[in-house]
Design a protein around this nucleic acid. Structure first.
Lengths: 245, 245
DNA sequence: CCCTTCATGGTCAGTACGACTATTAGTCGC
DNA sequence: GCGACTAATAGTCGTACTGACCATGAAGGG
């Protein structure tokens, strides 16, 4: 809330300004591996280092609006209407930017098999980098990226978020690849199928369609994202601990 | 991230400054009912309205540090070391404060049966208000409070967060009251007990102690918070929908 | 034509869960 | 002190979900 001590706060601010940025962890799954969109910094500090895309929130924008604008700029995507950048958290430690006091509102965004990014005007270049090879990044972006990964992994369990990684029509094998890529763990195919189909509203079959998955093997049935956003029952990831359930 | 366009951003900021505040949704359960800590605003705008406690983030602080400081000031608690305000989300819509551009990082904090708050220097007065009677609040605090409620309700399912509402030693009945107060739903006592005890690390018994719960009924065994932070298996709330599981 | 590859269908035992019933150990009113 | 009341604790039972399997079907490649 705006504290009651307006004049003091305002004064302080006048001497030590806060800049607010919106940064994005844009994730996708490509050939079974999790990738993240990075830009190469063209200016100091961290010139030449890779960083998460983002930029200043403008005076007439919310952080959400700024995130959507940045996403469109960095990916060159004409239609970002279906994408809903989700707020991750806010990073406000003093000194995280050597130039000035910067408060960053971080977002995650999920894309299906993506177009090549086009370098924005202010970024030297942008490209998709496998998650495992992304570090080290500029500023505290290593931590932001790790937080984004964890958050997305957790949300896959209880929401139909995984379909956001998929094209409009997809096979259950493709959907499973999303889970495996984000969780970094293999899943049993028959069981995965059973659980997805048993969860009402998660996916719905495309009537008469089947697709050759790329050549090999039996053609798979196609599905669309269903209407549900929450998953009942949830699709829990295998417990990394030796926990019995 | 700090955008590469430093001078522009900085310029913009200089003409349209951002103030950053940390606001808190401090929750507790008192006599079986969820309460929230509110302060009465002593200045315009919204003078005389109730609002969530909070204040400006100082130049040398992170939002987390500011939240802890505000919490100590508003509650008069000498020891807030055990409390970990958790970031909820950030609210940045233009116009949410009529005076200037304010970006608010909201936090939740959970307290066991609390001391009476002392009015801070800048708040006319502060008090615990039953959650159901809290609205309407100043600014967009209605929404922040609703988001906090939902977040805490969800985290009760998968984390041992509920023990943060309890004193160091507590009975299972008291723990159950936390769940019922936050979820607004009654739970079956034997089943609740079974699940809590079956979740490793959630609670551990206090060796030879039993407490009279206040007079009536059989004395209950005392428990301490265990070492686990995540709950396996989770303690799912009753499905409000007529969902079969 | 067989072998590989992947989708799909099914079994089976262990576990968790909700709904209930029963027992125990206290206080309170008389 | 005796019985009603209250709350904690113990146990039961049928259903649902889960993970670990095994089996079948439908393509393509050598």
């Amino acid at each position: 809330m705006p504290g009651p001590a307006v004049p003091e706060g305002y004064d302080k601010y006048a001497h030590e300004p806060f800049a607010v940025t919106a940064d994005l962890a844009v994730l996708t799954v490509r050939e079974g591996a999790l990738h993240v969109l990075l830009v190469e910094r063209g200016e100091e500090p961290y010139r030449g280092h890779w960083a998460l895309p983002g930029g200043f929130v403008q005076p007439d924008e919310s952080a959400e609006t700024a995130a959507r604008r940045e996403l469109a700029e960095e990916t060159g995507l004409s239609d970002v209407s279906g994408l809903h950048p989700e707020q991750l958290r806010t990073y406000s430690e003093p000194g995280r930017d050597p130039r000035m006091r910067v408060v960053t509102v971080a977002f995650t965004a999920l894309l299906p098999d993506p177009p090549e990014p086009r370098a924005g005007s202010d970024a030297a270049r942008a490209r998709w980098v496998p998650y495992a090879e992304a570090r080290p990044l500029a500023f505290d972006h290593d931590r932001i990226l790790a937080d984004a990964h964890e958050r997305v992994g957790a949300r896959l369990e209880y929401s139909s978020l995984a379909t956001a990684f998929c094209p409009p029509e997809f096979t259950l094998g493709e959907l499973q690849q999303i889970y495996e890529a984000v969780w970094g763990a293999g899943l049993d195919r028959p069981n995965f199928r059973r659980k997805v189909l048993a969860t009402p509203g998660f996916v719905e079959p495309v009537p008469g369609a089947a697709r050759l998955t790329g050549g090999r093997g039996k053609p798979a049935a196609l599905y669309r994202a269903g209407t549900a956003t929450a998953l009942h029952p949830p699709l829990l990831r295998p417990t990394p601990e030796g926990r019995p359930a």
